[in-house]
Lab assay of single mutants.
Amino acid sequence: MSGYILFSSEMRAVIKAQHPDYSFGELSRLVGTEWRNLETAKKAEYEERAAKVAEQQERERA
C-alpha cells in the first residue's frame, strides 16, 4: 500500500460526501490535485502509515 492510496481512500469519502453528484473521474482528479498540493510532511505521514499497514498485512498473511 502506498501513501497515496491511503490518502485517496480517505479523501475520496470526504469529497464524495461534499459532492455526491461528482463522477468517479471528477473525484479522482480532485484527489490527485489535493495530493499534489499536500505538504511534504503530510505526505510523509501517509507514507509511514501505509508502510505500517503493509507490514501488518504481511504479518497476517504469514
Rank of each mutant, 00 (worst) to 15 (best):
M1W: 01
M1T: 08
S2W: 03
S2L: 07
S2T: 09
G3W: 00
G3A: 05
G3F: 00
G3Y: 00
Y4W: 10
Y4S: 03
Y4F: 09
I5E: 15
L6W: 02
F7L: 00
F7Y: 07
F7H: 02
S8R: 15
S8P: 00
S8C: 15
S8N: 08
S8D: 14
S8G: 05
S9M: 10
S9F: 04
S9A: 12
S9L: 06
S9E: 15
S9D: 13
E10W: 01
E10P: 01
E10C: 00
E10H: 04
M11W: 05
M11N: 05
M11L: 09
R12L: 13
R12P: 01
R12C: 12
R12H: 08
R12N: 08
A13T: 10
A13L: 06
V14K: 15
V14P: 03
V14G: 11
V14D: 06
V14Y: 07
I15R: 06
I15M: 13
I15P: 01
K16W: 05
K16E: 10
K16S: 11
K16M: 09
K16F: 04
A17T: 09
A17D: 08
A17F: 03
A17W: 04
Q18H: 12
Q18N: 08
Q18A: 10
Q18R: 14
H19N: 10
H19R: 05
H19M: 03
P20I: 02
P20K: 05
P20H: 04
P20W: 00
P20V: 03
P20C: 02
D21G: 12
D21K: 08
D21I: 02
Y22F: 11
Y22D: 04
Y22T: 14
Y22Q: 05
Y22H: 08
Y22G: 06
Y22E: 06
Y22C: 15
Y22M: 15
S23G: 07
S23P: 08
S23V: 02
S23N: 07
S23W: 00
S23M: 03
S23A: 05
F24Q: 15
F24A: 15
G25K: 12
G25F: 07
E26C: 03
E26T: 08
E26G: 03
L27S: 06
S28M: 06
S28N: 09
S28W: 04
R29W: 04
R29E: 14
R29A: 11
R29S: 08
L30H: 15
L30I: 12
V31L: 13
V31Y: 01
V31W: 00
G32A: 15
G32V: 11
T33E: 13
T33K: 14
T33Y: 10
T33C: 07
T33V: 12
T33P: 02
E34H: 10
E34K: 14
E34P: 00
E34W: 06
E34L: 14
W35I: 01
W35A: 02
R36A: 14
R36Q: 14
R36F: 05
N37P: 00
N37W: 02
L38C: 02
L38H: 01
L38Q: 01
L38K: 00
L38W: 00
E39Q: 08
E39I: 03
E39W: 00
T40N: 13
T40I: 09
T40W: 07
T40E: 14
T40S: 13
T40V: 09
A41W: 09
A41Y: 08
K42G: 03
K43N: 00
A44C: 10
A44N: 11
A44Q: 14
A44D: 08
E45R: 06
E45W: 09
E45P: 01
E45A: 09
Y46I: 01
Y46H: 00
E47F: 04
E47Q: 08
E47P: 00
E47H: 07
E48L: 11
E48I: 09
R49G: 01
R49C: 02
A50S: 04
A50P: 00
A50E: 02
A51T: 10
K52G: 10
K52I: 08
K52D: 06
V53G: 08
V53Q: 13
A54R: 11
A54P: 06
A54D: 06
E55R: 13
Q56I: 10
Q56C: 12
Q56T: 11
Q57V: 09
Q57T: 11
R59E: 15
R59H: 12
E60F: 07
E60G: 13
E60A: 12
R61N: 13
R61P: 15
A62H: 04
